[in-house]
Simulated assay, not measured.
Amino acid sequence: MNQVIETILNHRSIRKFKEEKLSSDQVQTIVEAAQQASSSSNVMAYSIIGVTDQSLKNELYGISGHSHVKNNGHLFVFCGDLHRIHQLAQDHPNKDIEENMESTEQFIVATVDAALAAQNAAIASESMGLGICYIGSLRNDINRLNELLKLPEHVIPLFGLAVGYPDQNPEIKPRLPLKAIYHENQYLPFSEQQAHITTYDNEMQNYYGSRSSNTKVDTWTDQMLRKYSKPTRMDVTPFIKSKNLNKR
């Protein structure tokens, strides 16, 4: 097994960081690694906002509620971004791009491009001995997040990535068995996945009961049923459409 695979398989979310900030060289390396991610048709339909202003971090903490949003070595916010393309078209009035730009397809392109770039950034960070944590809770108030970051039309904030020097060493959280995730040639009926999910529920129950902190009694099935029985962030849909994305 090579070092890259070892880094990937050793991933765990870090939610407590030392006070040391990342250097400008480290930030540049992480962003350059992100930029080398695959991109649909080389659109590169994303932007990355580095948050260094502590008062702004505190505002974002007010949205998220997670302390690692304000206490980290560096905070990146990944955005889906078609604003650049839209602006290029303003100088070419004979090019009508509105219908295409507002399509669900281009919304998917932007979100996938951003996610691929972020995962490159995460792996690069971890390979440098840093820890990372993705922060979807920034969408708890997506309109306020949009205002704070001063995002123009056709740019949407997707998630944060907190990076820093780890001040904890949590256990690696188990994942679903491969046979519940990997389907060959066609999608397997749920009945063929269910036994693997039951195995995973048992593994997760043991994990939560034996880990070094925040022990509890829970399973993956129970977590998912709780999560999806409570509508969450329902303001995201009208917000996305208000930015003239995912309208068609």
Rank of each mutant, 00 (worst) to 15 (best):
V4N: 00
T7A: 08
R15T: 09
F17N: 11
F17P: 10
E19Y: 10
Q28A: 06
T29K: 15
V31W: 02
E32N: 13
Q36F: 06
I48G: 03
V51T: 03
S55N: 15
L56H: 05
N58Q: 15
E59G: 09
L60Y: 10
I63P: 07
H68M: 12
N71A: 14
V77E: 02
C79V: 02
R84I: 09
R84M: 09
I85A: 10
I85F: 12
H86A: 10
A89Y: 02
H92L: 10
H92N: 05
N94F: 12
I97R: 04
I97D: 08
S103F: 00
S103D: 01
E105S: 07
T111C: 04
D113T: 05
D113I: 04
L116D: 01
A117M: 03
Q119I: 00
N120I: 00
A121W: 01
M128R: 09
G129I: 04
G129H: 11
L130W: 02
C133T: 05
I135K: 09
D141T: 14
D141R: 12
D141Q: 14
N143K: 13
R144G: 12
N146S: 13
E147R: 15
L151Q: 04
P152I: 04
P152S: 07
I156R: 01
F159V: 00
Y165V: 13
P170E: 03
K173L: 02
K173V: 01
P174D: 01
R175T: 00
R175A: 02
R175W: 01
L176Y: 00
K179I: 00
A180N: 00
I181W: 01
H183M: 07
S191A: 04
A195Y: 07
I197E: 01
T199S: 14
Y200S: 03
Y200C: 06
M204F: 08
S210A: 13
S213H: 13
T219S: 15
W220D: 09
L225I: 15
T232P: 10
R233C: 10
I240G: 05
L245G: 07
